[in-house]
């Protein structure tokens, strides 16, 4: 899917052209009749049906988070709250606020550092055809697919040996390392779309690789950075596996705090659901505000060249 990422991050002129292309092509005679109207109706009914199905969990989260204890009984499970009560939200926030802010301290450095390293790698791998470059790239990609369980025990032992502090500092390091493959991939595909002439002209001017990178490539890399940082932001924010092994409810990110809140002995549904919404808020906001770029990162996950 090399091209799909690029589609997402190409300049607007191209985007307009694509939009124009997307417009309904002229229909041939005979393809619009009562039959095609029926097909279209069925299509919209299905689309709406699935829309509702997909939104059901969101509805449950939202209404349950505003219910009081008595309201949560099975009889009223699916109805709106009798009176909208924010007590659940207050309980959730008092449990989660520390870990919520802590998670920003994790995702911001982790995504900036891995995006920067990814951009250097991507540049080298897209521009520098040395023998074995493809093999190096494939070996880097493999790191993206490994089940982290396979490296977890030795990783725990290494972290213990070097005495790394449990919690956010360890997790920043871990997410940078295991985020490198995907960041490299996104940038490599992005730089493959930067016109060669731009870079060649720098070479003619006598600029070396590092000068070319800092003065020519970095300034045009903003779209690549946006896609990469969003991708890393989302996956680090939502990580649970590494957080379980390298942090605790006292010093870990919000996913740990949330599971701690939701899996407690007393099933406090209102607070759990409010907590789930709080913990999802940053990534949902990113998705809503920067949706186009978000999809760009998703597409990069499918590597097929």
């Amino acid at each position: 899917m090399t091209t799909t990422v690029l589609d997402e991050v190409k300049p607007t002129a191209d985007r307009k052209a694509r939009k124009a292309k997307k417009a309904r092509p002229p229909q041939l005679p005979g393809t619009r009749g009562p039959r095609s109207t029926a097909v279209r109706t069925v299509k919209y009914v299905l689309l709406l049906f699935f829309l509702i199905i997909v939104l059901i969990p969101a509805y449950v989260l939202f209404v349950t988070s505003f219910k009081t204890g008595a309201d949560i009984s099975p009889d009223t499970a699916w109805s709106l709250p009798e009176n909208w009560d924010t007590a659940g939200w207050e309980r959730a926030w008092s449990t989660l606020s520390d870990s919520f802010w802590r998670t920003f301290g994790l995702v911001i450095p982790a995504s900036l550092i891995s995006a920067f390293l990814g951009s250097m790698n991507g540049f080298v791998l897209s521009r520098w055809r040395f023998r074995g470059a493809d093999l190096v790239f494939t070996l880097i990609l493999f790191g993206m697919f490994i089940p982290y369980q396979a490296v977890m025990i030795p990783l725990v032992e290494i972290m213990n040996t070097v005495g790394a502090e449990r919690g956010i500092p360890s997790l920043i390091f871990i997410h940078v390392v295991y985020g490198l493959p995907i960041c490299t991939l996104i940038f490599r595909n992005y730089y493959a779309s930067v016109p060669t002439e731009v870079i060649e002209s720098a070479k003619v001017d006598g600029a070396g690789m590092i000068r070319t990178y800092t003065s020519i490539v970095l300034p045009v890399s903003i779209p690549g950075f946006v896609v990469t940082i969003i991708w890393q932001f989302t996956s680090v924010w939502n990580d649970y596996l590494f957080a379980m092994f390298f942090s605790s409810a006292q010093n870990g990110p919000v996913t740990i705090g949330l599971n701690f809140l939701a899996a407690g002995q007393l099933q406090d549904y209102a607070a759990s659901m409010a907590g789930a919404l709080i913990a999802s808020l940053p990534t949902l906001l990113v998705y809503i505000v920067l949706g186009r770029w978000f999809v760009g990162g998703l597409m990069a996950g499918s590597v097929k060249g």
């Binding site: 969990p57 989260l61 924010w237 649970y240 599971n259 907590g275 789930a276 919404l277 913990a279």
Partner: peptide, 8 residues
């Protein structure tokens, strides 16, 4: 996250 959707 799976953890958040797991709650609901």
């Amino acid at each position: 996250s799976f953890v958040a959707s797991g709650v609901v």
